[in-house]
Every structure is written in structure tokens, then in C-alpha cells.
Design a protein around this nucleic acid. Structure first.
Ligand SMILES: [Mn+2]
Ligand SMILES: [Mn+2]
Ligand SMILES: [Mn+2]
Ligand SMILES: [Mn+2]
Lengths: 222, 222
DNA sequence: AATAAAATTTAGACAAATCTAAAATTTATT
DNA sequence: AATAAATTTTAGATTTGTCTAAATTTTATT
């Protein structure tokens, strides 16, 4: 079967909201999809009819196995396209989401398999989010807030918590990218800012807000 | 303004049908778009309201300047994507049209400019059709039916008249591609077939039907 | 020129996806 | 437990793009 763009967007939203709470509320979906709760109720009924979600009136909705499979397929397309836009077409990672929102609905199995091959089977998108493989499997990587990491240990930036041009500008200023290695040197109680060293450059102080937005993994040793 | 997929498809169809006859008939549009004449009338009225076409009841429709500009933008996207699919993602040219029909509706000026740059500003798509440039300009190249070309002169295959897997198979068999050089040696009145030499290989006989489908240009001299 | 055939338009309906306003149900508060 | 507040659903309407059937107009044929 083929699904409409609206249906695909609903399924994707349910998937993302499910990460927070197992049952997704009508109002949360409406908020995420920028639509009215009444519209959500209608569509959720349709998706129930199409056997993609489990739904109980007044309680909430969640994906069933088929829905989850579909969601991961769409997310796979979205993130592969984002990777393509950044790595092949030289977009900034603050510019790709909107375009990927359109490209993710293009339907061609061969297209996505050949794109994946051309890109070299990337496992993470430009924001550090995992790209589901053909079977829907997600690679795991730590994504811990830089803010509350132990001092002196080497860390690697694995993901960013938002995708704004403002954050990209900030990271450019500090010479930080995904994959960059940093160490927390100390924390300031006054404003919650922290001092870090980026790669081998001289230490810089970053705001609490920035430190919360950057996600890292602990590096084995070094 | 932004146009719907349906609107874009109508505009593109009017453009293509206009190449045959300046005024496009409702039934021709319906046939091309695989829809009913009544639906065409409705949409044509809408496009008139949006100032993309000129329309007179019972007479026919034609693009105005804005409509022509839009049509060429969509065709540019379609053909650039076809080029990408064949040259970057290793599709066969018999597999790309359907996917390009979807991709042509993705709306992002930066996407198409960066794609064009990545591909090296190609001027012809995998079927030999010209790719409009950013301003809508089409490169010219002769596309004469191989069938009625003078004998002994060197010719280059510039385009194919259809996009079927069957034709692609046939061309593979004869080792012919776009850009291949051929010479007509003689014609057979019995079935209208012709004998040609392909590049420097030994002569082969091709059917009248195939000779009509291959389009060529005369090569300056050699 | 009258009539028949073909092409086109109009009228009225329908499915998809959305909306607003009102009703129903659940959850929180007194 | 009763009442108020919040959430969710239902009812009815709207827009887009489509359809069928009937009416209109144009074109072709006698
Ligand atoms: Mn995204
Ligand atoms: Mn992403
Ligand atoms: Mn095509
Ligand atoms: Mn083409």
C-alpha cells in the first residue's frame, strides 16, 4: 500500500512523541503537527483503520509493529537526504530539515538504496541522529549532555540538541563540529557556564545553555 | 506564490502539448494527464485565475509568460534529477522518469542550484532532452530522425524518441548510446530497415521503427 | 442549411484533509 | 463526592481535486 504525505507525517510524529511517553496524547500530536486536535482525532481513526496504530478513545495512540516499521523507513529517508544535502550539496546543517521534510515523501525503494550506497551507508545524520538501516535498525551512540560530564575526561561531540542557524554560528565561532573532541576543565556556579578545551586549542568558556545543547560520548581512553 | 503538485503537472503538460499546437485542447490535456475533460476545465479556470494561462471557452488554453517560466522551472528540475539518477545513482534511463515526476515538485531554490552545480551544469538529460538553465534558456541541438538521413555522412545520436526498457535493451544490443557516432550505409525498400555502421564496428541492419526513434545531428566534418 | 457527431462545459456529487463550535469524557480541585 | 477545568471527540462546514451525467457549443456530414 501507499500512504499519503499527511499519513506519513502523522506516523513520523507519533514515533517521535512516543520516545517521550508510550501513549501519545491527541493534543501533543496536534501541537507537533501544527494542527487542531479535532483533525488529529479524524486522522488517528483513519490510521487505526489502516492498521498502523493502536488507539483508544480519550486515552491516546501508539504505533503498532507496522507503524513503527513505516516510521523508521520515513526517518531513514529524511536523514539520508539530510546527509546528502550537507555532504554532497554543501548545505549547512541548519538549512536541510525543511528540504528533507519534502524529500522524505518521495517513494522509490531503488532511489533510497542507491542514495545510501552513493553516500557510503552513513550511520548518523548531520545533527548526530542515527540513520535507520534498511531493516530499521538504529546504531547506538552515547548522547550525554556536555554540561554534566566529569572533568578532565576526553569527550567527543556526537549530536546537537537543536538545529538553529544561531547554534551553528556559535559552534563555528568556537571551532566545534560533530566529532570534535573536548574536555571539561571546570564549572562556574555563578551562571552555570563551564570552561572546556576544544581539541588542542586554548580553553574557552561556554554558556550553560550551550553546554546543555551539546551531546557527547566518553572516549574510551587516549 | 507556491503551486500545488496538480497545478504544476497541468502547467507542464500544457507546455509540452503546446509544442505540437499553439492552442491546447481540453481533451488533449485530459488524455495527457490521465483525467476527465471536466476536471481539466475546472483546473484550467483556476490556472486562469492564477494568471498562468490564457484560456478561451471552447477554444483552448495556452501558457502566458508566467506560465512558460514556471513550466521551464519544473522541466529544469525534472531533467536535472533524471541526470542525477543516471549519472550519480547509476539508474538506467528507462527507470528515472517516474522518480523525477516526484522529485520535480520538491521546492527549494538552493537545492536545485546546488544540484546543478554538483552535476557540472549539464545541458542535456539522459534522453537527450535539453535542461533549461536558471533563466529558462534551452540549449539547441539537432534532433533529426536517423531514418531519413543522407548516406555516408557521419551522425551523432543526440536523443531517443521513447524511454522504454525495450528500447534501452535494443540499444545495448547494438552498442549504441547517446553520443555514439553512426553512418547510414543503405536503405532497404522491402521493410524500410536501414544498414548503418556504429562507430568503427562492422555494419548492422536496424528496423525502420528503431531508425525513426533515434534522433541524430550531422557532424560538422571529420 | 439542417442534422449528426464530437468536443467542451456545467451541475451536482464525493473523498481527503482540514477547520470551528458544541458535546462528551476524563482529570483535577474543592 | 460534587464541581470545575482540561482534554478529547463529534457534528457540520470548507477547500482541493476529482468524478459522472446532462447541457451547451463547435465541427463535420449529409
Ligand atoms: Mn530533520
Ligand atoms: Mn536530522
Ligand atoms: Mn522524464
Ligand atoms: Mn527526460
Amino acid at each position: 500500500m501507499q500512504y499519503t504525505i499527511a499519513e506519513e507525517n502523522y506516523i513520523k510524529s507519533v514515533y517521535h512523541l512516543q520516545q517521550q511517553s508510550a501513549l501519545v496524547a491527541t493534543n501533543h500530536l496536534a501541537e507537533a503537527l501544527q494542527t487542531q486536535p479535532a483533525s488529529v482525532t479524524d486522522m488517528v481513526k483513519k490510521l487505526t483503520g489502516k492498521k498502523l496504530v493502536h488507539y483508544e478513545r480519550y486515552k491516546g495512540v501508539r504505533l503498532n509493529a507496522a507503524g513503527k516499521r513505516l516510521a523508521l523507513q520515513i526517518i531513514r529517508k529524511h536523514r539520508l537526504w539530510e546527509y546528502f544535502l550537507v555532504n554532497t550539496l554543501e548545505f549547512g546543517w541548519d538549512e536541510v530539515h525543511e528540504v528533507a521534510e519534502q524529500l522524505e515523501h518521495v517513494s522509490s525503494a531503488k532511489l533510497i538504496e542507491q542514495l545510501d550506497r552513493f553516500l557510503g551507508h552513513p550511520r548518523f545524520d548531520p545533527h548526530g541522529d542515527p540513520i535507520p538501516d534498511k531493516e530499521g535498525k538504529l546504531a547506538f551512540r552515547q548522547r550525554l549532555p556536555l554540561l554534566d560530564q566529569p572533568h578532565q575526561k576526553w569527550l567527543e561531540i556526537t549530536a546537537v540538541g537543536d538545529e538553529s542557524p544561531a547554534l551553528l554560528e556559535m559552534l563555528g565561532h568556537h571551532n566545534i563540529q560533530l566529532g570534535t573532541r573536548v574536555r571539561v576543565l571546570r564549572a562556574f556556579s555563578f551562571d552555570g557556564s563551564i570552561e572546556i578545551s576544544v581539541a588542542d586549542q586554548k580553553p574557552v568558556t561556554i554558556s550553560n545553555q550551550l553546554a546543555k545543547t551539546l551531546l557527547v560520548k566518553l572516549i574510551e581512553h587516549d
